[in-house]
């Protein structure tokens, strides 16, 4: 259950940023999450509600934006969606090169923005 550590960090970043910006109440937290991050979304959300109690982020909604595994073909530079268990996706659809690429997306895990109501 590594979600606890992660959510603790989320709450601390969110409260720090909201307070620095003089926000009175955080309403939404937008998180960008790569496919390669194993997160239980329901658990993440409920832990957030629990750990954010008594802070400026209490009651805020967590919005997760997932990013698929994307790779860039070493031969032609084309970027395409890779599905690790689907062999058909291991070939570049542009130039036909097989398994010759670098991972460019899919391991993201950051807070992109927060929405807040203005302070007084």
């Amino acid at each position: 259950m590594h979600e606890m550590s992660l959510v603790r960090s989320v709450v601390s970043i969110v409260t720090e940023e909201a307070e620095a910006a003089g926000a009175a109440k955080v309403t939404k937290v937008h998180i960008v999450l790569g496919e390669g991050r194993d997160i239980v979304e329901d658990l993440f959300e409920s832990l957030f509600q629990f750990l954010a109690r008594g802070t400026v982020a209490e009651g805020a909604r967590v919005v997760l934006h997932t990013r698929p595994y994307m790779v860039r073909c070493n031969a032609c530079g084309n970027e395409f969606h890779l599905i690790p268990i689907d062999k058909r996706t291991w070939t570049c659809p542009e130039c036909g090169k097989y398994k010759d690429y670098q991972l460019v997306s899919g391991m993201e895990f950051y807070i992109s923005k927060i929405e807040a109501s203005k302070g007084n």
Binding site: L6, S9, I13, A21, I31, I111, K113, I114, S117, K118
Partner: peptide
């Protein structure tokens, strides 16, 4: 009244540990 605003953050969640 209650106006909403967006605060750009772009901070890695695991940055502290990293």
């Amino acid at each position: 009244m209650d106006e909403s605003r967006v605060i750009e953050v772009k901070r890695d969640i695991l940055a502290g540990n990293d």
